[in-house]
């Protein structure tokens, strides 16, 4: 089962996604696929805050800022679930974080291939993404390319997903309804 959860900054999407996976993956090992790369104090605080939020929820954390499918190598065989947070970081890392700049299209294809591989092995797969599309600012070319890449990943994932939820002020608004909630 694939669940896509979207929302803006500070919308409460992470904490909702964590309780969601907790509720639907009873008895399975839960992996947390962390994609954020830490460059500064701000990033460190953010990671720390998320770790604090996850504490005691029984996640096994895998740091995977690139090539998301490689997380599989660090998972045990058998039934399992995973929470990927967040698609906006993963997309930025794939495009801008390596030694060569990767095009938005190539990054999106690569990510979706990786997600496909993970999905085959996971009983429950929750992906958190970010709504970065509504601030009305016309950004320069490379940021627009990034936004288009993330938007295309989001739309493809939403089409594949059983459930799509937008979190607004901590409240889940169902965009696509599947088996659960």
């Amino acid at each position: 089962m694939l669940i896509l959860i979207t929302g803006g900054s500070g919308s409460g999407k992470s904490s909702y996604a964590e309780s969601y996976i907790d509720a639907v993956s009873k008895g399975m090992p839960k992996y947390y696929l962390a994609t954020m790369q830490v460059f500064d104090e701000d990033g460190r605080r953010k990671v720390e805050r998320h770790r604090e939020l996850r504490k005691g929820k029984g996640f096994v954390t895998i740091e995977q800022p690139f090539s998301i499918e490689e997380a599989l190598e660090r998972m045990k065989p058998g039934r399992k679930s995973a929470l990927l947070e967040c698609m906006s970081n993963l997309t930025a890392n794939e495009m801008f974080g390596g030694s060569v700049r990767v095009s938005g299209k190539q990054a999106a294809d690569q990510i979706l291939q990786g997600i496909g591989k993970l999905q085959k092995e996971l009983e429950v797969f929750v992906i958190v993404t970010n709504n970065v599309f509504e601030d009305g600012i016309l950004y320069e070319k490379s940021t627009r390319e990034y936004m288009e890449a993330l938007a295309s990943v989001n739309s493809t994932l939403a089409a594949m997903a059983d459930v799509v939820i937008e979190v607004v002020a901590g409240i889940p608004v169902v965009l696509k309804k599947g088996e659960y909630r």
């Binding site: 929302g7 803006g8 900054s9 500070g10 919308s11 409460g12 701000d42 906006s88 709504n131 970065v132 599309f133 509504e134 601030d135 009305g136 600012i137 950004y139 940021t143 936004m147 002020a169 901590g170």
Partner: peptide, 23 residues
């Protein structure tokens, strides 16, 4: 909160903290 995360620290803090108090 539904935008590109700003480079400016205060702008970022504004979006995060307003979002959380709204939650």
């Amino acid at each position: 909160g539904n935008g590109i995360v700003p480079v400016d620290a205060l702008e970022r803090e504004y979006r995060e903290r307003l979002g959380r108090i709204l939650v």
